[in-house]
Design a protein around this nucleic acid. Structure first.
Lengths: 204, 204
DNA sequence: GTCTATAGTTTGATAGAC
DNA sequence: GTCTATCAAACTATAGAC
């Protein structure tokens, strides 16, 4: 067991990561200043620099803390022989893991320009590409790789729809009401499974 | 006919739009400074401000000039009664129009945080949502709206794949070589049609 | 571990000459 | 229509006291 005298696992560092991801996802990486993060936490900018060397280092912290479900899914799929069942199980694990970490996925998709020059951002992108590779299996066609990619992005698209204005026209009914996050994720997984179902690596 | 003495339709303004979109798509809106745009054009920042009132006004210029194919597709679909044939024709027009304007789509998808506070950005988003609505027709379920959204994003996903490193592992073959832009767009349309095919607005 | 204070840079935008 | 010169503001990051 851990020492009782030890503080609750560097609480501030964890809080910085949480607040930063929240702001990065909502307002974007570039538009979120360290001052905003510090203010929301009730500390000063300098305090942030005690825990993280640079702004980009916070991104590193975010990815390291939040990408665990993605790594788990990759570890589960890696080494196994490809099969339709494996493919579907990977999608289920991805949807379950990322659905609970919606801000991370949003941050990744909507801040590509900032993440493109970030080591941590590229590391996350590599994980996504690895996930795509596991999904389509060996000797894929371009269409197979595209289907795998589209399947993964359907989770993000579902979130986009949730955020988008539900009532768009005065005449149109608000499309079966606003679904909950869980319902949206369920729909995302269903569509993802549909798209991925036509992946057939042996038919090259 | 237009006056012969008139200059070639304000060449500089058009060049600013082209260069700005190119840089915005490649390096992102926030990371692209007006100095960079001016330098590449061989002018100064002040010259930019003669043609555009603010940086965001350049975005407005981009959308107004480049979103024409999208408006055409919307105009084509609006007022018509929904049918599977209309749905597919809309997807074909969208893919054809946006495939030729790949940077615009990339700019839109990868710079949401910046565009979220931009009037021009919101106008483009409205067009996309309108396109989604035309695709799924009346009384959609959330799944239908999601399928319509995913179908539209497949064009962007195809471009993501094209940019992503083709050779990912030492052992893996580079997935049927690097396809051309046209081949990628053809694949994107095929996947989009697949995804949209299960939209059935009457089965609510 | 957190603070004050500030260095040092870059940015978007403006004024006015030509 | 393009230039030079400049502004105020905002940012990341650092130094050093407590």
């Amino acid at each position: 067991m851990t020492t009782p005298t030890q503080s609750p696992r560097s609480d501030t560092r964890a809080r910085i990561i949480d607040v930063a991801l929240e702001l990065f996802a909502e307002h974007g990486y570039e538009k979120t200043s360290l001052r905003e993060i510090a203010d929301r936490l009730g500390v000063t900018k300098a305090a942030l620099y005690y825990h993280f060397k640079t702004k980009d280092d916070i991104v590193r912290g975010i990815v390291e803390k939040m990408a665990a479900p993605l790594d788990d899914a990759i570890a589960f799929g890696e080494g196994k022989e490809w099969s339709p069942e494996l493919r579907d199980e990977l999608l289920r694990r991805f949807a379950a893991g990322m659905g609970e970490r919606a801000p991370l996925l949003r941050f990744f998709h909507e801040n590509q320009p900032a993440l493109r020059e970030s080591a941590a951002g590229l590391a996350f992108k590599d994980r996504m590409i690895k996930m795509i590779t596991l999904l389509h299996g060996p000797e894929p066609t371009f269409r197979d790789r595209l289907r795998a990619t589209v399947a993964l992005t359907s989770v993000h698209s579902a979130m986009f729809l949730l955020k988008a204005d539900p009532c768009m026209e005065p005449g149109a009914r608000p499309a079966a009401g606003s679904p909950t996050l869980d319902e949206a994720m369920e729909a995302a997984l269903e569509v993802a499974l549909e798209v991925a179902a036509r992946i057939e690596p042996s038919a090259h």
